[in-house]
Amino acid sequence: MLYPASLSRTVAQASLWMGAIAGSLFTLSFHPVSATPETQSSIHQSAEVNREAVLAIALGGSAAIGIGLSAAVNRNGNRKPSAQPDRFAAVSFDRVSRPLQQKLVRALHGDRPAAQRLFTQASFKTPGKSSDWYAEKVIYDLERDRGK
């Protein structure tokens, strides 16, 4: 099953490839490969049809590039706010209440970096919870593992 994010990425990549191919064909139409004098006349006769076709392909490629770039911009910067809050911005060890922070650091014998690592791991394992919940979960797990 395709997800919208992967689909838009695929569409953007495909449109950029189409634009690159169209640009190459457009460039080749204005710089024909050198030919012998006998084939020069046949090249000039078919050049009108080829230029129109190449122009159509170039316009299509330009449209594809525009669509791809607008999809990339929408995906990266001008995105509408989602209903789901960004869990990385809302969850931080610094947002944990002072008593819980102290209890967690004490449980790890003063090793604050280890407390922050365990807190971060818990937030990755169970997304969508509050900062205090993660601190309580880490404390609970430590006590459980130590047999208290």
Score class of each variant (00 low, 15 high):
15 S>Y: 04
71 A>E: 09
30 F>N: 10
69 L>I: 15
41 S>A: 09
76 N>Y: 08
81 P>V: 07
31 H>C: 13
89 A>N: 12
59 L>Q: 05
42 S>W: 10
23 G>I: 04
58 A>S: 09
20 A>H: 03
60 G>W: 00
39 T>E: 08
45 Q>W: 09
61 G>Y: 01
15 S>D: 13
88 F>Y: 06
67 I>M: 10
72 A>H: 01
32 P>H: 02
54 V>A: 10
35 A>Y: 00
43 I>K: 05
73 V>P: 00
80 K>S: 07
22 A>F: 00
23 G>D: 10
60 G>P: 00
24 S>Y: 12
54 V>D: 14
28 L>R: 09
49 V>H: 06
22 A>V: 03
64 A>M: 06
50 N>C: 07
43 I>A: 04
64 A>W: 01
26 F>V: 04
24 S>P: 00
22 A>R: 02
45 Q>T: 15
35 A>W: 00
81 P>I: 06
27 T>V: 15
82 S>C: 00
46 S>K: 05
61 G>V: 03
18 M>C: 14
56 A>H: 06
82 S>Q: 14
19 G>M: 00
39 T>G: 03
84 Q>Y: 02
43 I>D: 04
54 V>Y: 14
51 R>K: 09
54 V>R: 15
64 A>P: 03
61 G>M: 03
83 A>Q: 06
60 G>C: 12
58 A>H: 08
70 S>C: 08
58 A>E: 07
52 E>M: 14
67 I>N: 10
15 S>T: 12
30 F>M: 04
28 L>W: 03
52 E>I: 12
58 A>D: 11
20 A>D: 01
87 R>S: 13
56 A>W: 13
63 A>E: 03
25 L>K: 13
21 I>L: 10
49 V>C: 02
38 E>R: 13
80 K>W: 05
29 S>P: 03
65 I>A: 10
44 H>N: 11
89 A>Y: 04
20 A>V: 01
42 S>L: 10
45 Q>A: 13
47 A>N: 12
29 S>M: 07
70 S>V: 14
79 R>S: 11
85 P>S: 08
24 S>N: 04
27 T>C: 04
45 Q>S: 15
59 L>T: 11
45 Q>I: 13
36 T>H: 11
73 V>I: 13
54 V>K: 09
42 S>K: 09
88 F>M: 06
16 L>A: 15
66 G>T: 05
47 A>C: 12
29 S>I: 05
74 N>C: 06
72 A>S: 14
16 L>H: 09
16 L>N: 13
66 G>C: 06
55 L>G: 10
60 G>L: 15
40 Q>F: 06
67 I>F: 07
61 G>R: 02
43 I>N: 05
16 L>T: 13
80 K>N: 06
50 N>I: 10
